[in-house]
Amino acid sequence: MELLWIFLGSIFVNNIILSLFLGNCPFLGVSTKSGTAKGMGVAVIFVLVLASIMTWLAYNFVLVPLDLRYLYTLAFILIIAALVQFVELALKKINPALYKSLGIFLPLITTNCAVLGVAVINMNEGYGLAASVVNAFGSSAGFLLAIILMAGIRERIDDNADIPKCLRGLPIALVTAGLMSIAFMGFAGLIK
């Protein structure tokens, strides 16, 4: 039951983009077409879930026993970078079709602060392995939801001639994200 609350909370209440501000670069950079946005979102789910398992294992079985907790930033980013490289290679060999649709997004995800951010949140909250995975899945599903909504909106407003010239593109996308964020605040009452 608690896992369900973590899941719902990480998708809606603490949406990774609209309330925690993690992963804004791909959210704003890759949200001009909904097909691309969907690919990015799925790739983020894939990497985030894997990364949260790996970082949880590394933290609890390597860093804590050796009393090297303070090195977590360095350890986590190395794990994420290595993992992304490995996933890219493995996917290329095992499932070329999937690689074709997700592969191009993978290198970007190394420096996506959502991945490192969720790993750090899992650590700070003291989540167990199951809770970490659920939180990672929920957060990345929240990312997918937000980026698809955003792409849908941007496809319609980007050519709108009524928008002042200096606001076109990114500035108006940011204001749109603000309005989406207000809407998502409505979920705050969902979980106490």
Partner: peptide, 10 residues
């Protein structure tokens, strides 16, 4: 990223 934005998606 530019490559992703241009050639990505299904």
């Amino acid at each position: 990223c530019g490559a992703a934005a241009k050639g990505g998606g299904n």
